[in-house]
Design a protein around this nucleic acid. Structure first.
Lengths: 176, 176
DNA sequence: TGAGTCTGATTGCAAATTGCAACTGGTTGC
DNA sequence: GCAACCAGTTGCAATTTGCAATCAGACTCA
């Protein structure tokens, strides 16, 4: 399994849509990035056991390896815990946010989503590019350590999560 | 192989991102929609033999079946040719355009795209939502037969194709 | 009428990927 | 010292993919 393939390798074509699908075109990669981005999961066990869709540990390990190789996320040791790994989004990964916003909007419109799990997508859609930028800045601070303009009040993820909690509380029977 | 699954079926979760991935999360489905949308391919043979990435006929047949079942495209008989099928985008399929625009922008920024094959993505990015709407109107007219506001001059797809041709002509060695 | 072509696929088969459950070797906190 | 926790690995069956060959029913032209 060759790890790095930076430029001209065996690509099906040089089309941006095709190349993106070669990196992210499967049923799990974007799920993992979603959990890191919106759920703030940074460790293997968090990603494994808190995942809504029930990802298997071998698939998770494989996808994390691939995403690191593709430069969408990075992996480093946790200084406080000798065999604990911390996964972080790279800038390349953070900039997937607009794609998530669009995918969320489409899914919300055309697929049988549950209300609780789609409230975040709705807020992201309504917030538009300005909100996306704010969230991406927040992610850059958390994942890349880049200090950005301080904004008052709770962060974007926090607000999204609060909205989710509110809806979920109203519908105790629904899936968490 | 059960065909229809409209509402509550065996979904991994009700998250809009997950549900979208369940429909489109593989390496070929979006490629086919892309060819229909930007390449104006409407028949099996066109999709098969003009495809840039070399899709196999069994995969194409399977994905067309799935996309029809999911309501992203529709299939009807060609009246002029008894065993010829015409595939059309549905409104659900047409509204994938903003996702393509975002994916194209991300791929262009982060992956080793070729200039000729990414010029369309660039124009779509620069044109913004106004251009997307114009293109979607054009697609509604072509695929759904919905008459829309007449606009003067060549259509969006035509303009995108012309730009591609111009770049490709400048670089005869590059992939078509 | 019959040969050749075009149509949307299907078939057979090897290789790769997925999903599931059990397990591993090491670390940490008590 | 020991239970709990950590990031994965391993083995295996089932499914999916990729590839090439093939198919049967229209159409085309002579």
């Amino acid at each position: 399994m060759t790890a790095e393939r930076e430029e001209s390798d065996t690509h099906r074509s040089g089309c941006p849509i095709n190349l993106t699908l070669e990196v992210l075109g499967d049923k799990w990669s974007l799920i993992i990035v979603r959990d890191m981005m919106f759920g703030n999961r940074r460790h293997f066990r968090e990603l494994l056991s808190q995942n809504e869709e029930g990802i298997a540990s071998n698939i998770l390990a494989d996808r994390l390896r691939r995403l690191v190789a593709e430069g969408v996320i990075s992996r480093e040791d946790d200084p406080s815990h000798k065999q604990k790994a911390i996964y972080s989004l790279t800038e390349k990964g953070i900039e997937l946010l607009p794609i998530f916003a669009m995918i969320g909007a489409w899914g919300r419109r055309w697929l049988p989503v549950t209300e609780a799990l789609s409230i975040r997508a709705q807020l992201l859609e309504e917030g538009g590019p300005a909100l996306w930028e704010e969230f991406m800045d927040e992610l850059r601070q958390e994942h890349l350590g880049i200090p950005t303009k301080q904004r008052p009040g709770p962060g974007v993820r926090e607000r999204l999560y609060a909205a989710y909690q509110e809806v979920a509380a109203r519908q105790p029977s629904a899936q968490l």
